[in-house]
Design a binder for these strands. Sequence first.
DNA 1: CGCTAATCGAGACGGTACGTCAAGTCTTATT
DNA 2: AATAAGACTTGACGTACCGTCTCGATTAGCG
Lengths: 171, 171, 171, 171
Amino acid sequence: VLHAVDDLLVEVGYAAMTIKGIAERAGVGRETIYRWWSNKAEILLEACAVDIDEDIEVPEAGPAAERLVRYLGSVTAFLTESTAGAAYRALVGEAQHDPAVRELVQSAALLTGGALRLLDELRAELPAMPERNLAVTQLLGPVHFAVLTGSRSPSARQLAAHAHCLLRAWG
Amino acid sequence: VLHAVDDLLVEVGYAAMTIKGIAERAGVGRETIYRWWSNKAEILLEACAVDIDEDIEVPEAGPAAERLVRYLGSVTAFLTESTAGAAYRALVGEAQHDPAVRELVQSAALLTGGALRLLDELRAELPAMPERNLAVTQLLGPVHFAVLTGSRSPSARQLAAHAHCLLRAWG
Amino acid sequence: VLHAVDDLLVEVGYAAMTIKGIAERAGVGRETIYRWWSNKAEILLEACAVDIDEDIEVPEAGPAAERLVRYLGSVTAFLTESTAGAAYRALVGEAQHDPAVRELVQSAALLTGGALRLLDELRAELPAMPERNLAVTQLLGPVHFAVLTGSRSPSARQLAAHAHCLLRAWG
Amino acid sequence: VLHAVDDLLVEVGYAAMTIKGIAERAGVGRETIYRWWSNKAEILLEACAVDIDEDIEVPEAGPAAERLVRYLGSVTAFLTESTAGAAYRALVGEAQHDPAVRELVQSAALLTGGALRLLDELRAELPAMPERNLAVTQLLGPVHFAVLTGSRSPSARQLAAHAHCLLRAWG
DNA sequence: CGCTAATCGAGACGGTACGTCAAGTCTTATT
DNA sequence: AATAAGACTTGACGTACCGTCTCGATTAGCG
């Protein structure tokens, strides 16, 4: 089922993805889907959560600059290239329409987990880093904004520039 | 019709807002709506674009720090408190589901217009500011991210901290 | 729609006749059917009532024996040969399953109308005829019973024998 | 299982009686039901056939008039008051929808057996009685018709009047 | 000023997905 | 080996909304 969701998401898009279609694609009865998930968002969340930790690498050693750049690159690749990333974007989109989905997404803390870990490790080197939540927001927000509302995904050069800005501000 | 859209958006949410409902609320035939807009996103865009320039103030004088903080506060208030902001969020959400809406939103450049103007004016004072697009992304991205995926809107203290980080990085 | 109901009734039988199927056969949206009828029984009733008065002839002149025999023949032909008769039988069947349909059928008094008229006209010639309802029941009951529970429809000879029994009893 | 069928038939009616419901009520797996009966009609037939011979008394001595009246009363009580009678009515109803059930019901000859026996015994006294099948039809048809399509079950007075009509016709 | 026309509201139409329900099949664990 | 339990695929249910269409009623412009 989760594979079918991924496939349909890239083939027809979220708006045209129906539970009926998922069921047929997965060779499964519609009832079975309703038995295990209560709405499309839950399916997406699962389709997304399975891959997110594998796809997004949190670099564990090396200079702070390199670790940030590699992490940002990893997040960007996830968001723009993987099917799980497409599911994540659809999920955030749905969260703007439906409060229940909003809570689901918030409580899953899909992206912020890895970022928090990374920043906590770097905090010793970066004395001016603000409190955890704000720091994560400053790290991920621009990438997120660019991917969700921009026409092109951020280039490697832009990611590097962003990382160096943060290092300068936090150093 | 646009008032009816605003009202329904806050009353029932985007997901439960139907064209049928809008028509009935506005005391208008459904056909009339189809005559002027081709989908829900276009109505939202219009409902949003009307107010966005009025609601978001771009401070025109004063110290850079104050201008940034006031601008960020204005953007945050728009996104979290106004009905036009709700329309904007719904629009960005829908853009994740439907490529046609994505293009519509991108070409409208709803938020970035004011930010570009402000940053261009401040560029003289901030020699390390990166290229325009990245700078806008760094300015707005975190607020956007916090509003779209967070549980609480950013506090005034957090906005100030963010502005000062940027000043430090760009100074 | 009513034609589609008649057709499907003889083609697939009542049990396999679905509203979905009727809609597709009639080239009509399902909602349209629900708009005009609230259940399958109401459609059948209409499909039946349209034809019943045309199909069942109530002989208006002639000797009592001949009038009774011709009327019984007409009823039998309707019940066993016409599509409206098939609808009537399905309706009576459904009435045994669903009290709402039962009331619908009773209030329509589909068959008894013509019989009452005929017997009222013959009453002058048949002094021992019992009260109207019982007389109708004695006239139609045996035909009804034979058609609903028997393997063969009553033959012309049997109908004649039945009519003469009644004349003898009522004469 | 048969008790559960009887109970559910009077509680919720045939239309709302599901095999799932029967299984749960009987504390039995659904598979077990499918193992022994191939459809709802067969279960009903069994639930009905068990009681029908006990419930309908065929008077064995006395004047012809009294025997007929008592027999008709017994049949009417069975059809309108017993749960087995409800099952019989549901069965006849289903027979109008499904040819397979129709054959099942015909071959069971549920009601006609006792009537044939009674009429054969009375034939000596009633020289004008027509051939067996027609006579049974004339005896039972009116009661059957009244119960299946009427709003009230026949009164004792009506049953007596019907019996005397038959005696007059057959005498 | 009166008449024709365009436009509007209302809502029926053919479609299609929804989420629910029961059917009948199949598997598993119990007895 | 037969059972109760229950997950499975299938498909109809009745509902909601879609976008199109046809209607009168209401305006508004033109003669």
